[in-house]
Design a protein around this nucleic acid. Sequence first.
DNA 1: CCGCGCGGTAGACGAAAGTCGACGCCCGCC
DNA 2: GGCGGGCGTCGACTTTCGTCTACCGCGCGG
Lengths: 223, 223
Amino acid sequence: MSTPARILIVDDDALVRLGLSMMLAGVEDLEVVGEVADGTEVFGAVNEHRPDVVLMDIRMPRMDGLAATERLRARRDPPEVVVMTTFDTDEHILRAMRAGACGFLLKHTPPEQFVDAIRRAAAGEPIVSPSVLRRLMSYVGDLSNAAADPRRERARRALERLSPNELAVARLVGEGLANSEIGRELSMSVATVKAYVSRLLTKLELNNRVQIALLVHDAALEE
Amino acid sequence: MSTPARILIVDDDALVRLGLSMMLAGVEDLEVVGEVADGTEVFGAVNEHRPDVVLMDIRMPRMDGLAATERLRARRDPPEVVVMTTFDTDEHILRAMRAGACGFLLKHTPPEQFVDAIRRAAAGEPIVSPSVLRRLMSYVGDLSNAAADPRRERARRALERLSPNELAVARLVGEGLANSEIGRELSMSVATVKAYVSRLLTKLELNNRVQIALLVHDAALEE
DNA sequence: CCGCGCGGTAGACGAAAGTCGACGCCCGCC
DNA sequence: GGCGGGCGTCGACTTTCGTCTACCGCGCGG
């Protein structure tokens, strides 16, 4: 990068702001272009200084960093936002991701890594501290187990063996509709709906419509 | 770190193995202690060379990298495993995380970052390439939305207003049990179970037991 | 103290759900 | 051509569900 990356520091603690600018002052390809103490001041400062990266504290008076991040990222051509905090609770991390932050750093990260991370952020890379990444990974690991849920797989395969009409009925049973409602919805007599339900029970080896509903939901066929 | 980190390379492509060792040869704190071409050879090589980090290709004949990783991580005192691949499909990333890999690198990552990542892995840090991290973050972002699912919240609050007995009945309805089965399970007459179900329908403002089942499942009260 | 609401129990009874055949249809297969 | 099998349709019959009503005990506020 030819011109240094422009940094805006947002933190209610003057000491932290000072420490941060000191830390970044000695880095040639990073330039601190502004400091503000409050989420509400961010927007004006961004307009004025056009930073590439905003270093955002989470815990601030008036408007917290997450809300500010969200509003910032909603703009056209938003700066990258790196959220900083002292403690890495799952809550914080998740909400920061959702708010659109490109990174999440712990304040006690060693200066060298800290600077490096900001540099990467300026280049558009996503960044997180190692401890955060570890959480992220185990989180995803857990969830991917859920995604590959064998129950869901079995449910899917079972439902794939149904005719379109049978599937339609199964879906509506899964919505909690009564036979009469299903009949109205699909333009068939109650007797026919019952016959479908009955055949579904046989085919899927289930005992009652509740289990059909549960199966349909396990298969996640809502879309 | 005083002694260099010991690296084992696992890749079926001799060219890749060569490239990798060349790349790492010039790095003073990393030492390639072995190379193997197949997942089945990994275990012997690990016993022999005691590497700190295993660089593992995913796509290999005989035993793929994911399976090998899983078995490796199941040992006592396992080496760190960094999974390498050419394409970063979600499938691969997720499965690698689950298999216990501490990192996931794309082969076309710039050498400098590649070396740095391996160094970090040796120090026990989790590592992923930027593009993978981006996916991970958006993935988690999506999922955290799901976790905060308003449906689930409403479902929870609704179920919290129930007495223990009512909840027990609701749960069993949620399992797809018939009234007679619920009665047997909770030692009450079918008539009583019906009365409970009926009261549940009133309290929860629902029309039939299927909807109770769906509500219970939305609240994720399985545990 | 007494009425009242609420949780737990249960029987009676009408209304759904589910079963069993039955019939027609279309398609593939001797 | 005939025959079986899957699908869609339905009515009659049985079983289960859900409502209504009723009674008891308990705790709480007038």
